[in-house]
Design a protein around this nucleic acid. Structure first.
Length: 594
RNA sequence: CGGGGUGUAGCGCAGCUUGGCUUAGCGCGCAGCGUUCGGGACGCUGAGGCCGCCGGUUCAAAUCCGGCCACCCCGACCA
């Protein structure tokens, strides 16, 4: 391809709309342009990268035995009502009424569509296993699109669905996809980590996320360098009270944890003494920060009481230490409920008979009280008194109120230890580039996707689903492969493998030789871009750095006088001077043997 | 949805406080001519603007007031 005939609108200056590095570089190197918030156009160069990635995905999917299809993006609302996800995904569903009054949604994912297809066309165990996939545009009305293509409301996704006759077979399909995903991301040149994850609204009970570490990533991942444990923040298990700083009593303790053994002795002793429950004034102080500041105690001396609304409008009071956060994912699992919503102000007042902001467990009636494990052994803590501007101090479980159930419901934090090996954990930001789920029968049940098994019995197909954010791979690749001058593409997903920079000036010979080399690359089927623009060397070098094409052939008068041209590696910046007739071969070898 | 910020040429910005010295400017980019040519050259000439939109105040609005819209960032949310 000739630069002069191509469309690569590079930007010299930083686009102010882009904060994230990948977003910035994608705009500057002319890969994408924003159309409206969360919606992007792919320009020729970006489109090439997208195609490279899609082809890798296709190759690996096909190799794993998956079959490519193309499903509609426009769905009648009924199928979403059928699965019930018109409710669970309400927030992100683009839904609208057509001119003729028919209700539609734009597909955010395709479990419904594919299950409907399979329900109508797969009737026998002989047709299983079956894995179908597509690469297609998805629409999700995200509350806040950000960071360019990392979170957009229209984006390209590869989604695959497996259908099996039983759990054992699902296991097989799942592993096939798991392995295919590993190959795909490896071939895309990404360093990824597989973590345990929450299936969320997708359903099912097992899921793994494929993550690429990057500060720009919106997801948090817990990792243990010692044993390799990795989980998304929201599902990571907490070790019972390992991290808790030993405390004496709420008032006055400033507890710097020095010697853990000594401390725990003190705390054990202190814990035996329960002080008298006392109601005190906390005028206008309701948040943990305000109350702990006012009473001069630490946040961990407080217990927050949070009222949730679960299935069938049942209310639950959830207790958590003041310095911790509830993981709603873990809570949902612990309560075994489908719906979990924070109670609104009115409901809180009804349940606690007190104002919002001063809720506490003492005196609560007709409500289940669930507490995090971290509360199982603390004494003399502070809670709301269910009265305006009042808190209790020296509250103690069993004496002052009863806990119906203890469970692990708090979000892990950086003071915690690894649930597997008890080493220090790390919490890192990451970009989710893939997510795979064992769905089970959630959708086959709603869509009656049954088959006749060998034993003459009708059975629901067992499903799995597997997603890759194709556009996200680009962003993740750039986030992890760039320098101050621009992108450094992994060879397999680079828009071109090699760029030729003829430093022409007035020299026609340079031009002629460059053209010869260009044609040699084309003959060898190596994707080549020649910068045939009438620009000075500096401009060409800088644009080449920005575009990040892995190999660069520089044709200049100086080296040409020795019958040589320069071959430079974008990543290592290593340069070597080679005879013209060797150059194509050399690049070919590097691409093939990388 | 809450908080913060921005909107002036393709991109980056100044001008706005104190309305008129602006025929709306600067840098980059873009077009033409000439010189230059291994890390973002230089000279000359030139094209390009509903100053986000609507309304108000005023003799006069990019500038003051009101409303709206769009975009970005933080939070909430998130498959």
């Amino acid at each position: 391809m000739r630069y002069s005939k191509y469309f690569i609108p590079t930007l010299k200056e930083e686009p102010k709309e882009a904060e994230a590095i990948s977003h910035n570089l994608m705009l500057r190197s002319g890969l994408i342009r924003r159309f409206t918030s969360g919606v992007y156009s792919y320009l020729p160069l970006g489109w090439r990268v997208l195609n490279k990635i899609e082809n890798i995905i296709r190759a690996e999917m096909n190799k794993a035995g998956a079959l490519e299809v193309l499903l509609p993006a426009l769905h009648p609302s009924e199928i979403w009502e059928k699965s019930g996800r018109n409710k669970t995904l309400k927030e992100v569903l683009f839904s609208f009424k057509s001119q003729r009054g028919k209700n539609f949604v734009l597909g955010p994912t395709h479990e419904e569509v594919i299950t409907d297809l399979v329900a109508n066309n797969v009737k026998s165990y002989k047709q299983l296993p079956l894995i179908l996939y597509q690469i297609q545009t998805k629409f999700r009305d995200e509350p806040r699109p950000r960071s360019g293509v990392l979170r957009s409301i229209e984006f390209i996704m590869k989604d695959a669905y497996s259908f099996d006759k039983d759990k054992k077979a699902l296991e097989k399909s799942y592993n096939k996809m798991y392995d295919a995903y590993c190959s795909i991301f490896r071939r895309c040149g990404l360093e990824y980590k597989i973590v345990q994850a929450d299936p969320g609204a997708m359903g099912g009970d097992v899921s793994h996320e494929f993550m690429v570490f990057s500060n720009t990533g919106e997801d948090k991942v817990v990792i243990c360098d010692n044993c390799g444990y990795a989980a998304s923040l929201e599902v990571a298990e907490c070790v019972k009270s390992e991290d808790r700083k030993p405390r004496t009593n709420p008032a006055g303790a400033t507890g710097q944890a020095e010697d853990p053994e000594k401390k725990s002795e003190i705390s054990n002793e202190a814990d035996r003494k329960q002080k008298d429950l006392k109601e005190i004034d906390t005028p206008g102080k309701s948040s943990v920060k305000e109350v702990s500041g006012f009473l001069k105690v630490e946040p961990e001396d407080l217990v927050k009481t949070i009222i949730y609304n679960i299935d069938n409008n049942e209310k639950v009071a959830v207790l958590i230490r003041g310095d911790c956060n509830i993981s709603e994912v873990k809570l949902k699992k612990a309560l075994r409920c489908n719906e979990l919503l924070l109670a609104d102000d009115e409901q809180i007042q009804k349940v606690t008979k007190g104002p919002v902001g001063f809720s506490g467990p003492v005196g609560l009636k007709n409500i289940k009280i669930v507490a995090d494990y971290s509360l199982s052994d603390i004494k003399n803590f502070v809670t709301g008194a269910n009265k305006k501007d009042k808190h209790f101090i020296n509250v103690n479980i069993d004496r002052d109120f009863k806990v119906d159930k203890y469970c692990d419901i708090r979000e892990i934090n950086s003071n915690d230890v690894c649930p597997k090996c008890k080493s220090k954990i790390k919490i890192k930001n990451a970009i989710e580039i893939g997510h795979i789920f064992k769905l089970g029968t959630k959708y086959s049940n709603s869509f009656k996707a049954n088959f006749l098994d060998k034993d003459m019995k009708q059975k629901p197909v067992i499903m799995g689903c597997y997603g890759i954010g194709v556009s996200r791979i680009i962003a993740a690749a750039i986030e992890t492969n760039h320098d101050e001058n621009g992108i450094i593409w992994p060879v397999n997903i680079a828009p071109f493998s090699v760029i030729i920079l003829p430093l022409t000036g007035t020299d026609n010979h340079v031009k002629k030789v460059s053209e010869e080399i260009y044609n040699l690359f084309i003959d060898k089927k190596i994707e080549v871009l020649i910068d045939d623009r009438d620009e000075r060397a500096g401009v060409k070098f800088n644009d080449a750095d920005l575009l990040g094409i892995p190999y660069r052939v520089i044709v200049g008068e100086k080296s040409l006088s020795e019958n040589k041209v320069e071959l430079q590696n974008r990543k290592t910046k290593d340069s070597k001077f080679l005879p013209i007739e060797k150059i194509v071969e050399e690049v070919f070898d590097m691409i093939e043997n990388r």
